[in-house]
């Protein structure tokens, strides 16, 4: 095992590790890392789970891995189309076990902002907006997000706007994995190339790190699955993730 672990692989692999046997798991729009994580879990793990996606896919076998995580190729090989209203209704009635949702800012309560930087009415940056979060985060059994940048800009003490409240079940960044504990995000593990002190310095909210340690390196099958999904490193390059 190499002693180096890229931030991109760290995020995708740790998102995949949230997937559990037999559960209904969903990846949505604007969500390349979770799309790759679900496809990685299908290849790397011995258990089965129900993979749904925003392209209507139900246990799909896509013939290629698309740049867009809502590309219709993600429904290829499905025996059914489970379209948008279907998967949202499934979620709100309690049938979505694991839902991956995007976020721009995350706070220590496991809430997210995908709406705006600055005042909503006088935005400094208008972000994509509500999306799935406000409805899926509170109703999915577990909701997990990721950030490609781990900093006090993205992991904040105070959100500019609360788009969705949960709490989140988990967060993966290039250097850390958080899980919910008692209504707060707690550190589960950190990237073996960084220190706990660095994670604290780069996180805007206070967190409990009891029991946390370095994240286990990718298993051979996890690493092989990601190489298979991204053979020429295109996704890795496009994601442009640094652990620094």
């Amino acid at each position: 095992m190499s002693e180096r672990w890229s931030g991109f692989s760290y995020i995708v692999t740790n998102l995949a590790r949230f997937v559990r046997p037999g559960e209904v798991t969903f990846s949505g729009v604007n969500s390349t890392p979770p799309m790759l994580a679900c496809l990685l879990a299908k290849r790397a793990y011995d258990f089965d789970f129900v993979y749904l996606n925003v392209a209507g896919g139900v246990q799909p076998r896509p013939s290629k891995i698309p740049l867009s995580s809502s590309d219709p190729v993600l429904a290829q090989g499905s025996a059914a189309i489970f379209a948008n209203e279907d998967f949202y209704d499934l979620c709100t009635r309690g049938g979505m076990d694991l839902c991956f949702l995007g976020a721009a800012q995350i706070d220590g309560h496991g809430r997210t902002n995908v709406s705006v930087i600055g005042d909503w009415h006088r935005p400094k940056v208008r972000l994509p907006g509500g999306g799935g979060g406000a409805v899926m985060l509170p109703t999915a059994r577990r909701a997990v997000t990721w950030r490609t940048e781990h900093s006090t800009r993205t992991l904040v003490d105070r959100l500019d706007f609360v788009t969705a409240a949960g709490p989140l079940h988990g967060v993966a960044t290039p250097i850390a994995v958080f899980v919910e504990r008692g209504g707060r995000l707690a550190l589960q593990s950190w990237h073996p190339q960084v220190s706990l002190a660095e994670v604290r310095r780069r996180t805007g909210f206070a967190f409990d790190a009891a029991g946390a340690g370095p994240t286990p390196f990718p298993a051979a099958r996890e690493a092989a699955a990601l190489r298979c999904l991204d053979p020429d490193g295109r996704f890795e390059r496009d994601a442009n993730v640094s652990i620094d």
């Binding site: 809430r111 509500g130 406000a134 609360v162």
Partner: peptide
């Protein structure tokens, strides 16, 4: 949220003035 917009559209489709939607709790929206 995509589903609150859809709830509004469902209200119109169902011919009723408003439509319940799951979630939204805790959102500034």
């Amino acid at each position: 949220a995509c589903m609150t917009l859809t709830a509004g559209l469902r209200a119109a489709a169902f011919g009723v003035p408003f439509q319940p939607v799951g979630g939204v709790h805790g959102s500034d929206l």
